[in-house]
């Protein structure tokens, strides 16, 4: 798997430096922050789907993924009826089954705080529901928005954890969507020094990152 290290004053600059080296777009990469200081950020950028990067987003899905193909066909039809010109592909190797929608000017398909994307995902799951096992779901992503958002909130979680370790004080994060809160809980669950919990009511529910109390406390 191709990867490159990037350095820059900001996260964006560091990622851009690595992307230039890889000759790759943001859509096909995963970013891992190696270090982050006030003056420099170092990242490792890895191409997550080299085949798709080479062949473009219309690369056919794995033939074994019948459910994914069914969902892809349905979403393509739905987008056509909506008058949206976009390509839909099944993300290879993803669990749960993930559909990637790509094209130009798809901001409207994401909507305010991902609301339209979320609605599209709900409709897709209802349409494909009879082909899915109990508890199985289809994830719909537009221009890797969801993935980028999850990545962003994981970074927020890590920063909050670092601060909690330094100060010993709990931090309350901004209100987030359920999948974002879940990403934070998963990011911090293995950290022996901090713990995360949620407070408040939807849609203002927030994650609190605080120091983990030892057993004798």
């Amino acid at each position: 798997m191709k990867s490159a290290e990037g350095r820059g004053r900001t996260l964006d600059e560091a990622v851009d430096a690595a992307l230039i080296e890889l000759n790759e777009s943001r859509r096909h990469v995963d970013v891992k922050i190696i270090s982050e200081t006030a003056s420099e950020t170092i990242v490792e950028v890895t191409v997550i789907d080299p085949a798709a990067a080479v062949l473009g987003t219309t690369m056919p899905a794995a033939p074994a993924n019948g459910k994914g193909e069914t969902a892809r066909g349905l979403v393509e039809g739905l987008l056509k009826h909506m008058g949206v010109r976009a390509q839909v592909s099944v993300r290879t190797g993803a669990d749960p089954i993930t559909l990637d929608i790509s094209g130009r000017d798809l901001g409207a398909l994401i909507g305010w705080r991902g609301e339209t994307l979320r609605a599209l995902q709900a409709v897709t799951n209802v349409m494909v529901g009879k082909h899915l096992a109990e508890g199985e779901r289809i994830i719909v992503d537009v221009e890797r928005y969801r993935q980028r958002r999850e990545h962003t909130v994981r970074e927020i979680a890590m920063r909050a954890a670092r601060q909690v370790k330094m100060t010993g004080d709990a931090i309350t994060l901004d209100a987030m969507q359920p999948f974002e809160r879940r990403a934070i809980h998963l990011a911090l669950e293995g950290d022996p020094d901090v713990t995360s919990s949620s407070i408040g009511e939807e849609p203002e529910r927030r994650v609190v990152v605080g120091p983990r109390k030892s057993a004798e406390d």
Binding site: R118, A122, N125, R137, Q177, P178, F179, R181, R182, H185, L186, S196, S197, S198, E201, E202, P203, R205, V207
Partner: peptide
């Protein structure tokens, strides 16, 4: 709209298995 969004967020929490409620 805010109340409907609140209901949607609750339902999405169930769908996402947010793990915090």
């Amino acid at each position: 709209a805010e109340r409907i969004r609140k209901a949607i967020a609750l339902v999405n929490s169930v769908a996402d298995d947010a793990g915090d409620e």
